[in-house]
Simulated scan of single mutants.
Amino acid sequence: MNSSYSSFDQITNRFGTNSDKWDIMAQQFGQNQIALSVADMDLLTPEAIQKSIRRMADHGIYGYTNLFAPYYDAVKRWMRSAYSWQIEQEWIVFCPRIVQAVSLIIQHFTEETDRVLVHTPCYQPIPRSVRLNHRTLVESPLQLINGRYEMDFDDMERHMQEGIKILLFISPHNPTGRVWTRPELERVAALCEKYDVLIVSDEIHADFAHVGHEHTVIATLSDVIAQRSIICTSPAKTFNLAGLEISNIIIPNAELRAGFRTRMLQSGVFDPTFFAVPALEAAYTACDEWLGELRTYIQGNIAFAKQFIMEHMPELVVIEPEGTYLLWVDCRAVSRDEQALKQWIEQEAGVTVSFGTAFGPGGDGYIRINLGTPRALLQEALERIQRAYPLAKR
C-alpha cells in the first residue's frame, strides 16, 4: 500500500478543533457518535500543503497579505490542466467563500423581488442567499428518471419566459451527484442566452468527476456563454481546505467583473488570510498525483458503501454518483418521515448524516452520506446503521 493510501486510512481525532462537523455534533450526541455529514473530508490534507502551511507558521509574523503572480499562475495552470480552459489573470477574482461570492453577486446584479432560479433538491446555502437578500427564489425540480436526476428544460423555460435574472447552477450537483453532460450544458446555455439570464456556476466539486464522466466548465462552451458566466471555483473540497477560506471567482466579462469587484469593496471583502494562498499554490502545483490517488480511494468508498447497502439494507436505493464524494440515498422504504429516519440513524445507530429536507423540496425521505472518510470509519458507521435498521426488525 502506498503512502497516500496509508494516510487516507488514518483515522484522525477531530474533536477539540472547533470542527463544524464533529464538535457541533458532539455537543448534541457526545463523542461516541460518527459524523458522515458536513461536506469536508476526514482525510489528511496532502503533505505538500501541510509543509507550505508549516513554513508560513514558522515565520512568526502573520500580517496582512495580498495576491501576487504565483497565485494567479497556479489558478491558471489548474484550469488549463484540469479543464482545458485557458483563462487570463485579470479574469480571476479572489473571494473567501463561494457562498459569500454568490450573495454579493445577487446583491449587485439584481434588485429586490427579482427572480433567481435554482434546481432542487440542492445545497441550501445557495437558495438561502436568495431569500436573505429579499429576491424571489424560483425552484425548478430535478426529475428522477430511471434512477438518474435530470433537468426539466420545459419547466426552466417556462420560468425564464416569466423573467429570471440569474441561474444559480451547481455543477457537479450537490446532493444528487450528477455531472452534467455537455449536451445538457448546451441546453442550459441556450436558454440563458435566449432569455438574457446570468449564469452563476458553483463548481466547487468539479475535481470529483468519476470514471466515465467528465466535468465541463459551462463557460468553455463558447465565447458568448463565457461573457454571461461567473464561474465559482475553489480548492476547498478537493484538498480539504475549507477552513482556510479561499475561492477563485472567474469572470471573463470585464463589466461583470468590475461590478463584482465593486460590490466586494463595498462589503469590505478583500485580501486573503495568511495561510490561504500558500495552501492554494501548493495544491494547484504539487498535488496532482495525490489527487489521483484520492479519487481512486473515494471511488473505492463508493463501491464499498453501495455493496454494503445492497447486501444488508436492500430496500434503500442509492442514487449512482457521477461526481462528488457524497452519496444520495433514498430511504423512503423505511419511512418518508424524517423524524423517524433521525431516530433510526442519529439516535439508535449513533451516526450523523445530512437529512434530505436540508436540501429543500424533493429531499423528503433521503439522506446524504459523506464518503470522504477513512474506510474503517465508513464501515463502522454503516454497520451501526445496519444493526439499527428498522426493516431488519420486522
Rank of each mutant, 00 (worst) to 15 (best):
I246N: 06
K21L: 14
I251Y: 10
E203R: 01
K21W: 06
P252M: 05
S19N: 11
N253I: 09
Y366N: 07
E112W: 03
G360D: 01
R261Q: 15
L104E: 00
Q89H: 10
R336N: 13
C192K: 09
I92V: 08
I105H: 06
H210R: 14
R158H: 12
L244V: 07
K342W: 05
M1C: 09
I34D: 04
Q227T: 02
L244F: 13
D196S: 04
N301R: 05
S52A: 15
R178A: 12
Q339L: 12
Y284W: 07
V277H: 09
P183M: 05
S6F: 08
Y366C: 07
R135F: 04
F275P: 00
D271G: 10
V224F: 11
A242H: 05
Q227C: 03
L256I: 11
S52C: 07
A82C: 07
A254E: 15
E338H: 05
I145M: 13
P235W: 02
W180N: 00
I164K: 11
I164Y: 12
G362M: 01
L280C: 12
I204M: 14
T238N: 10
Q161C: 10
Q143I: 15
V197W: 05
A349V: 03
K51I: 04
E162I: 00
Q143N: 11
I218K: 06
S129N: 14
R77D: 15
D20C: 12
R77F: 13
Y195F: 10
D23K: 12
D73G: 06
L280T: 08
Q266T: 03
M79W: 01
G292M: 07
A236Y: 02
F153Y: 15
F275M: 09
E346T: 10
S354C: 13
T220H: 12
E184H: 13
V197E: 02
I106G: 12
I34A: 00
M151D: 05
Y389E: 01
L43A: 02
E47C: 03
T65E: 15
F15M: 05
A381D: 07
D288C: 09
S7Y: 08
C95K: 00
W91C: 06
T262S: 11
T285C: 07
V179M: 11
H59F: 08
V269L: 11
T176I: 15
V99R: 13
C192S: 00
P125F: 08
D114P: 07
Q339I: 02
T181Q: 14
C95Q: 00
R261T: 04
L326T: 01
G30I: 07
F8L: 06
N13F: 09
S229E: 04
L316Y: 02
M79L: 14
E88V: 03
P96S: 03
R187F: 08
W290G: 00
E293Q: 15
F239A: 09
W344P: 00
P321T: 02
D152A: 06
A333W: 08
L132E: 08
P121C: 10
E255N: 05
Q86T: 07
L144N: 15
N248K: 05
R182C: 10
Q379T: 08
T45I: 09
R261I: 06
W85D: 05
A209T: 13
Q86W: 07
D9V: 02
V200N: 01
E320Y: 06
Q50T: 10
L36K: 03
Q266R: 02
I49R: 12
I53Y: 11
N370R: 00
Y284P: 02
